[in-house]
Design a protein around this nucleic acid. Structure first.
Ligand SMILES: [Mn+2]
Ligand SMILES: [Mn+2]
Ligand SMILES: [Zn+2]
Ligand SMILES: [Zn+2]
Lengths: 133, 133
DNA sequence: TATTAGAATAAGAATAGTTCTCATTCTCAA
DNA sequence: TTGAGAATGAGAACTATTCTTATTCTAATA
């Protein structure tokens, strides 16, 4: 597994992802990486994020129209809550998703390999903003 | 509502979306529109898709990394199953999603305004392909 | 019907995220 | 130490989408 995480660049990128703990865009990851190793290139960031995903080390999620956000994969599956107002991302777990997937597989004979799910709305700090422009 | 759907271009775009019944990308919608009205522009497609979304006539969903897919909004909410192999999109409904949203709102005090959900996998015709490259 | 102000359009330039290309550099097994 | 193959950096290319602006259209009014 970590067999293939053998270059300076890969070690650095994983390190940052692990320290940060959540939801970095490629651009932001690049920004942080450059501070520690000015020679790293954006191409390496993308290249290695794809590799990490293939290796199952990292999860990439599209939490908005613009770009993908990456985070180290944890043992427990979770989903995200994205605030329309402040942009903060919080997380939740629920057995209902597994249940939903099970039901769909039975009912439709579709073999599910991945559930893409996130919820948009307003976090506690931003509540009431929903009526604003 | 249809007040503002008053131009030649808007009528044509809605017509195509309604006839097709599902899941057109902006590009594909433009391709079809050009056949009936060679003077229409891609900018009008995007401009009016956004308008239709605001008016609640159309739903835009990002079903893959690349682009948004649009379909006329129907009375009953549904979610999509996207086949990794042939790309076909099928649909399903389930009360579990509403239930999930309710639970999350109670548990986390996050006010949900939208659930973004689709399932990836293999459709009946493509089953068994999951072990392939 | 003619006028006209404001809305919408076409065309293409601009932008942003991502992927690709390829010459150069690195890694590691022999 | 060497050399083959893997990985990188730099920037070009690509793709979906948004923006800009001169022109055209719409619809309310006279
Ligand atoms: Mn997360
Ligand atoms: Mn659908
Ligand atoms: Zn917030
Ligand atoms: Zn299929």
């Amino acid at each position: 597994m970590s067999d293939r995480v053998s270059t300076r660049q890969r070690r650095l990128l994983l390190e940052i992802l692990r320290e940060t703990g959540s939801h970095l865009s490629a651009k932001e990851l690049f920004r942080q990486a450059v501070q520690r190793d000015p020679r790293i290139s954006l191409a390496s960031v993308y290249r290695n994020l794809h590799l990490f995903e293939e290796l199952g080390l990292v999860d990439g999620k599209r939490l908005d129209r613009n770009c993908c956000y990456y985070e180290v994969k944890r043992s427990r599956q979770h989903y995200d809550l994205v605030c329309n107002c402040c942009g903060r991302v919080t997380e939740f777990e629920s057995p209902l998703i597994e249940k939903l997937v099970g039901e769909v597989q039975e009912r439709t004979a579709f073999e599910v390999t991945k559930a893409v799910l996130y919820l948009e709305g307003y976090c506690k700090q931003c509540e009431g903003q929903s009526k604003k422009p």
